[in-house]
Every structure is written in C-alpha cells, then in structure tokens.
Amino acid sequence: MQFIRRQLPLWVTFFGALYIFISWYIPSSFTFQIGQRRMAWLGQDIITGWSNWISIISGVALFYGILTLILYGWSKVRSRQPGYGYSIIMLVSLALMTALGLLYGTKAAPHVTSISYLLAPGKLQVGQEFALGLFGQINPFQWMYTNVMLPLSATMFSLLAFYIASAAFRTFRAKTTEATILLIAGVLVMLGRVSSGDLVPQLSFVSDYIMNILNAAGQRGILLGIVLGQIAFSVRIIFGVERSYLGGGD
C-alpha cells in the first residue's frame, strides 16, 4: 500500500518528466506501426499527443469546477446561509445561460442546435419564432452575453478607477525616499502615457524612458527570478525532493 501511495507516483513523475523532456528536444518523431496506424514513441508527436491529454483533463476540470459551484451554491440555498440570495441568482443565471446555449447555440445568429432538435423535432418553428420575437435576429445566448454579462463585468472592473483614485489621494505620500521616488515616477508615467504627454513631448520622453529602460530592467530581473525558481521547483518535483503534491504534508 505504501508503495502505491508513495513510491509509485514518484517513479511515474520521474519517468514521465524525463520522457517529455527528451521528446521536447527531438524535433522529428520516432514511430512504429500497429496494423494500419502509425504511432509515435518519441519526439514531436509525443508532445502533441500529451498536450491533447492536458486539454482533455482541463476540460474535465472545468466540468468539475462548475459541478462544485452548483453543489456549493445549492447547499448554501438549502441551509439558508447568509447571502444565499446571491447563490440563487448564480444558479438561475447558470441554468438560463446553459439552456439558451443548448437550445439556440452560441453563434451570432439564432440557429437550430442538435439539442433543440432532439427536444422538439416537430416544434422547431415555435422555438425559433419565440426567440425571434424576444431577441430579434440576434442569438439569445449572444444577446444575454452582450447585454447582461458584458456590461456587468465591465462595470465591476471599472469601479477600480474610483477606488484607485480615492486610495491614491489618501495614501500616496512622499514620506520616505523610496516613496518619493515611486511618487515622482508614477506621476511622470501617468502624465506621459496620456494625451498630456503628446502636448508636452518631454513628458512623453521621460515616461518612455522609465517604461523602456528602468521598468524593463526591473521586470527582467523579476522574470528571471521567477523562471529560475520554477526550474528549481520542477527539478525538486522530478527527483522526488518536493512531495507536497502527493498530499500528507511531507
């Protein structure tokens, strides 16, 4: 049991990683024949094949994500937890968008989907006429996306402008040398990156210098640090030094 829970995953990780690592650096594919079908055992096709599996697993993870969200929302509604009203809105919206997508498809114009055909093979006209009457020539799913989801999401994000303005006004103080440098750089970039920078070319020049030279140098350092950290972490996982992904806390 200990072997299956501890040893086996470590060996699978080690050989799996090694296999992909070697295939990554081989541009062509080594293949073998099974009947009519040619299969790859090393090289580029292995990378492509494995990436297919990752896409499939991502799709399944997405499905589980939605399922968990439904169960979580439903349990909140059932036990009348504080804020359960939001869960009702979430569940109704989820059900509505899913139904519209399945019935009318997701393209720009309304069209007959296989689901709507299966549900009402003899009454397609009624469903189409209903959608046309309610939404015009626009697909109901796309209509909801454009007129409900899009403005709501954009509004939520736009609220940041108000909070940032208020926070900057209250907290952006030149109390220390570092804060003063940040303040000056921030002000110059803010002015140089909008039309004021075009009215006063010096502002634009200084702003571009900060972004292209000073910022790029700092970001490059951060980026290299992150990547080196990722490599070190990957090597630790491959050689079984890092085992937290197995669970159990060791």
């Binding site: 580029q44 096709d45 990378i47 492509t48 494995w50 990436s51 297919n52 599996w53 990752i54 896409s55 697993i57 991502s58 799709g59 997405l62």
Partner: peptide, 14 residues
C-alpha cells in the same frame, strides 16, 4: 479551447 499551453503545443504540432 481549454488547456492553455497544451493548446499552443497542439497547434504547433498539428
């Protein structure tokens, strides 16, 4: 298309 980098690798291969 779900999968992030895997989609890009898929597009690169085929």
């Amino acid at each position: 298309k779900p999968g992030g980098f895997a989609v890009i690798l898929q597009m690169g291969g085929n």
